[in-house]
């Protein structure tokens, strides 16, 4: 694979027009906003970033940040008001077969033809790609097992639970073995186990050399698997970088949990302590002082339970950025 980005977005913007005058083409360009008559919503305001081949890229932001709008522009479902994007080295082109054959997409809160059973469903989507019937069948079986729907082959989608719909949606996105997988909130509607399964699946995709771009506001999911994340707030990019850089390990001190300490001993350690049942929790600010503190605590008759470097979680950044905007 070459090193040019597999997906890049530059100055991408989308302004929606609401209200009945908003539908009038000329009016749309005027910088006028009157509630109920002609309102403009700047959903995405000049977004630029690039996704490298082979990485898992997290697209983060609070509700209404413009994640779905951006992804829909990438998929050619809505036209950008300004800016441009390239996927797999080509500009956005709704009918570009070569490009589309190598992309997989899961929309937010997907809804599918309910009259289909899982195999028919995947056969339908597979039929839109140059695949033989045999290939489609094999791939469909494989994917249904992979997303954990191997047991539900006899049921029409009408009878699926929310999580099952989400799973078959992911299977649909992968039917063509895409190089670039774009998922809009793939974990929504899933229970913790289901979340983990999808996380593993996304990680597998990376192992297979595919690139995954997905949006989420579930921070643990992003933290655990993403190589890089972009944080978007109100249509603007606020942060972009590897997780490691955005969350500096140890910056928030180190948590030490010690059991079996008597009250005078706690006092002697000279750090504010929080009682947690029979144990005490301390936070050592300086990473270099951790060793000494642990030794002192053990000498005072304590029993070491755990030592955990605290890091600023993505959640903290998220909150900061959302407030700051």
């Amino acid at each position: 694979m070459d090193s040019s980005p597999i997906l890049s977005v530059s100055d991408l913007a989308k302004t929606f027009s609401l209200g009945f005058l908003g539908a009038v083409p000329g009016f749309r360009r005027l910088p006028i906003s009157v509630k109920g008559i002609a309102q403009r919503v700047e959903a995405v305001r000049g977004l630029s970033f690039a996704v490298e081949p082979g990485e898992i890229f997290g697209f983060l932001g609070p509700n209404g940040a413009g994640k779905t709008t951006t992804i829909k522009m990438l998929m050619g479902l809505i036209r950008p008001s300004a800016g441009s994007a390239t996927l797999l080295g080509h500009a956005l082109e709704p009918g570009n077969r070569r490009q589309r054959e190598r992309i997989g997409y899961l929309p937010e809160q997907p809804y599918f033809y309910e009259h289909l059973r899982p195999m028919e469903f995947l056969d339908f989507y597979g039929g839109l790609f140059p695949m033989t019937a045999q290939e489609r069948r094999r791939r469909a079986r494989e994917l249904l097992d992979r997303v954990g729907l191997g047991h539900a082959l006899d049921r029409p989608i009408r009878k699926f639970s929310k999580g099952m719909v989400q799973r078959i949606g992911i299977a649909q996105a992968l039917i063509n073995a895409p190089e670039l997988v774009i998922l809009d909130e793939p974990m929504s509607g899933l229970d913790p186990l289901g979340r983990k399964e999808i996380r593993d699946l996304i990680f597998d995709l990376k192992q297979q050399g595919r690139t995954v771009f997905f949006s989420s506001h579930i921070l643990q999911d992003v933290e655990q698997i993403c190589d890089r994340v972009a944080i978007v707030v109100k249509g603007r990019l606020r942060r972009l970088g590897p997780i490691g850089e955005l969350v500096e390990v140890g910056a928030q001190g180190t948590e030490v949990l010690v059991g079996g300490l008597q009250a005078p001993a706690v006092e002697a350690l000279r750090l504010p302590a929080t009682a947690l049942g029979a144990a005490h929790r301390f936070v050592v600010a300086d990473p270099a002082a951790v060793d000494g503190f642990v030794r002192a605590a053990l000498d005072a008759g304590g029993r070491l339970i755990s030592v955990t470097p605290q890091r600023r979680s993505l959640e903290d950044i998220f909150v900061e950025e959302a407030r700051g905007a």
Binding site: G76, P94, R97, R100, P110, L128, G169
Partner: peptide, 15 residues
């Protein structure tokens, strides 16, 4: 309305 079209149009198919 039900957004099934979201999963179809991004595939290699013209509108």
């Amino acid at each position: 309305e039900r957004k099934t079209i979201y999963t179809i149009l991004p595939k290699p198919i013209h509108r």
